[in-house]
Design a protein around this nucleic acid. Structure first.
Length: 109
DNA sequence: AAGGTGACTTTTC
DNA sequence: TGAAAAGCCACCT
């Protein structure tokens, strides 16, 4: 059988696949996803990919930073959407506008 | 090709 | 407890 080098595109695909596994009503952190994808040091890359992604099956709104906050981005519009959708799914926000990770962090099975 | 950037995380103080 | 600095590394110029 033929071998093939692991390309960065594979990694990106891998990351997107992981994100698709996050169940509704739960969130995951960038670092967690990076680790699950086998790229423990690439949390930033996860965000970088989410910035571009076009695939509608990827629930990018279920991804938050290590503090449970919705990460900053130039255009605050999608942040509002993210917060709204998560709220609809039952993910509650604290007074400071963060998700309570001890209750809503996704625990892969 | 080399250096700046960032939807991050962890450590330090 | 919380802000600031350091660490990281694929992408983009």
């Amino acid at each position: 059988m033929t071998e093939r080098a692991i390309t960065s595109q594979d990694s990106q695909q891998q990351i997107l696949t992981i994100i698709k596994l996050i169940p509704a009503g739960r969130v995951a952190t960038y670092g967690q996803i990076a680790k699950l994808a086998g790229l423990p040091k690439n949390a930033r890359q996860v965000g970088s990919i989410l910035k571009n992604v076009s695939d509608p099956d990827v629930p990018w709104f279920r991804v938050v930073n290590s503090k449970g906050e919705i990460s900053e981005r130039g255009n605050g519009e999608s942040q509002l959407v993210q917060r709204d959708v998560l709220d609809d799914e039952g993910v509650q926000f604290t007074r400071t506008g963060a998700v309570d990770l001890s209750r809503f962090l996704w625990e892969p099975t």
